[in-house]
Structure formats: structure tokens, C-alpha cells
Design a protein around this nucleic acid. Structure first.
Lengths: 212, 212
DNA sequence: ATAAATTTGTGAAAAATGTAACAAGGTTAC
DNA sequence: GTAACCTTGTTACATTTTTCACAAATTTAT
């Protein structure tokens, strides 16, 4: 795994988007130059960690000075790949799916929900948040045609595995899974799980133990 | 940090709820005895990892045999603390909050949304999913009176910090935060963040890099 | 009763991740 | 121009987490 050249910790990627968030905030406050300490002030991350993380990708700051907020923002976006727009498919327009459809935060990050699918005849054809809900039966043409590579999956637990397999045959490479099941998919498909119940259980555990 | 007696990795707690999920599934399939391999088959976790995780808490299996599904399920619930019901407060009944209110998964895990709060006069007093939405102005009495220790926060980014501080003064000890801001709170308050945009950014990054 | 086959539990080794210390580059005050 | 002061980038070190290897316990086959 340790790729001789440059091994980048998994955790670094997650922190990069936090840095980005902080930089956006600083940008809005018209701050032009910020030190690693300024950037991490409102995150639970040390300045050293930020510098270490950035060092995997290059040198973006100026010693004795700090980082140019705009420039670093751009660089991190380039690293993450969100300097260009990514089209997302949303599958399953239940309560959670609807909430995701309405979430304004995505667009700001160059993440754009391009199509929405459901199998409920009542919903199909209707529009929400300016996005038309399509019949899941036509998922293949649509996703292939639009060249979508990332999907958010908010269908019921029972259909999640089946639908996810279908997504893979459509050419989807990454899935953000909101269903409380672990998807068994080919190893070249990257799945990330958002599991509310699991998060709460961890909180309960920590609460009970006084968070060691 | 390393508490001489018994140090338990952070990650272990998160995996415990995955094991639980797997055990529930096996239980539904009427499986009585399962090996560490059976339990981890549909998770991306190795059997050794499961055994190691369990070893921090005791010995629950029988060598040469495996684990009693029901028994292990009970033990893990005891470890996590979800063998008893935990009352949860939900603050912010927007689109996401509504989805959370309707999420059936929680109750199954002994997590019960006990009260919901919002500041929108239109919503206050109405009931959703059998839970009455209360005025956030009365948050203090209600939470203190009911002895609630855990809150889910799904308010807007701008009010998240302020509301979370209020929650702390009410006696809330753990917060599951859905707002895309890092909450600055006393160190004895445990905050866990669910950040959809951030998760997607990580997916984009991995997709771009061919997930190293 | 013994041997072969399972499967757990766990110390020891390896890998991954985070922290500290500090050299290198840059700025400010005088 | 020089000294004092900042702040980054990075190597070496420390910690945390995972994996390996194998002994211990149990079952099955003969």
C-alpha cells in the first residue's frame, strides 16, 4: 500500500474539505492572508496537521507570512477535484432524498444533482427544486448518456443492494449510501456510508464511557 | 491517554454498531451460531478485527464453534449502551429535520426522538410522526425536565453555533451535528458531524485518484 | 481414544497516522 | 543592514490502529 513515492493518509482527504470550508469562511470575511493557525482555529485540527496534510501535495504557503486564502482555496479544490462541476444522480426520493434534493450546500461545492430517480408513479414526472424526477426503470440510458459517475442512494434498506448493483452496471463508480445496509459491490466501486443510527450509537457509547 | 488498564480504539465503537447490524440480520435469518467470518461477511471488516474488537470487552465466543448470535447481540448492545432506551432531542425541523423525524431506524436501536424544536410559528404546535413540535424558546425547561442528554442538530449553518451553546446550557452532553459548521463547545461535550458535502468531496477525490 | 479440523482470543510485529522539533525562508523594527 | 521575530515545510519521533501468527478450546471423524 505504501507507495514509495507518496502515500497519502485517508484522513487527509476528509480534512481537506474542512480546510476548504474554513477558507471559504475566511474569504467571505475578506481575509486575504491566513496562517495555518487562523485556518484551523474553528476546526478541531492542529495547525501542524494542516501543514503536514498540505505537504503531501506541494508547497502552498509563504514562510514567515502564511497562506493566500484565495490561492489555497483554489489549490485544495484542484486537489479534491471540485474545481470542476461533478454531476450527481440521486436515487430514491423519499423524505431523506427530498431533503438532499433541497440541500443548497452541494452546488456551492461544484456538486450538482443532475438527475433524480424514483419508482413511485406518483412522484415520477414531477419536479422538485427544479429537478425532474425520472422513472428508475430508465436509469441506465440517462446515467450513461449524461456520463454521471457518482450517485447518492437514499432508497429503502431492502432495495439498496439491488439498486446499487444496477447503478454499477450504468457506469457509476462511487456511491454515497444512506441506507443502513453494507453494499456488496465490486472492489473498484467506492462506497461511502452515512449511517445516522450508527453515529448516534457511537455517541451513546462515548456518553456512557465519559469519552475515555 | 493510554490508560494502562484497557485502551479502546475510537474506531472500535463505530464497528460495534456495524457488527450489531450484521447480527440483527443473521438473527432475522434464524441463524443461531455464527463465526467471526459469518458476521463480517457483508461488512468490509476482517474477522480478526471483529475478534480483536470484542477482546477489549471480554470473551463472548466459544473456540471451535463461534458466537451465539442472540447472546453477542445483547452483549454488544450492553457495551454500546443501547440496551436501554435513549431519549433524543431533535432541533430544527426543516427538510432534513423532518426526514430525521420520520426515520424509522432509530427506534429499533432504542434511540427515541422524544422532543422536536423549531422557531417557525407555523410549525410550532403541529405534530409530525406523532411528535409535537415545540417552541425552541422553551427548550430549556423541556430538555432539563425530561433529562435528555443527546441532541440532533439540523438547523441552518448561521444559527448552529448559537443553538448548540444553548443546548449545552440545557444539559445536553452529546450532539449529532448536521449543519456544515464546526461547533466550538466545551471539551466535555462530544460532537459528531454528519457532513454530506464533505463526504461527496471525499468521493470525488477518491474517484479522481483511483482510490489509491 | 486419537487425530484432524475448526474457530476463538491475544501477544507481538507491522503499518498507518499524528506530534514535535527545528531548519529554512521571509518580515518588521530600528 | 542587522537583529528579533514569524510562519512554513519536513525529518525524526511517538502514538494509535491493524494485521499476523499461533496457542487454547472445542468439535468431528475414525
Amino acid at each position: 500500500m505504501h507507495d514509495a513515492k507518496k502515500y497519502i493518509p485517508q484522513e487527509t482527504a476528509k480534512r481537506l474539505s474542512l480546510y476548504l470550508r474554513s477558507l471559504r469562511r475566511l474569504g467571505q470575511e475578506k481575509v486575504r492572508i491566513a496562517s495555518s493557525q487562523d485556518i484551523t482555529r474553528f476546526l478541531n485540527i492542529s495547525p501542524v496537521q494542516l501543514r503536514k496534510d498540505l505537504s503531501y501535495f506541494g508547497e502552498f504557503g509563504r514562510r514567515g507570512v502564511g497562506y493566500d486564502v484565495d490561492l489555497l482555496k483554489g489549490e485544495i479544490e484542484k486537489i479534491l477535484g471540485t474545481d470542476v462541476v461533478w454531476k450527481i444522480a440521486l436515487v430514491g426520493i423519499g423524505r431523506l432524498g427530498s431533503a438532499l434534493l433541497g440541500y443548497k450546500g452541494f452546488r456551492e461545492f461544484n456538486l450538482q444533482i443532475e438527475v433524480a430517480f424514483d419508482n413511485d408513479p406518483v412522484k415520477i414526472g414531477k419536479s422538485r427544486e427544479g429537478i425532474k424526477i425520472e422513472n428508475i426503470a430508465r436509469i441506465k440510458e440517462t446515467i450513461a448518456q449524461k456520463g454521471i459517475k457518482i450517485a447518492m442512494l437514499s432508497v429503502s434498506a431492502v432495495s439498496a443492494q439491488k439498486v446499487s448493483e444496477e447503478l454499477v452496471t450504468c457506469g457509476i463508480k462511487s456511491i454515497l449510501n444512506f441506507s443502513p445496509v453494507n453494499l456488496a459491490l465490486p472492489s473498484d466501486i467506492y462506497v461511502s456510508n452515512v449511517d445516522m443510527a450508527s453515529e448516534l450509537e457511537s455517541l451513546v457509547y462515548k456518553l456512557k464511557r465519559g469519552f475515555s
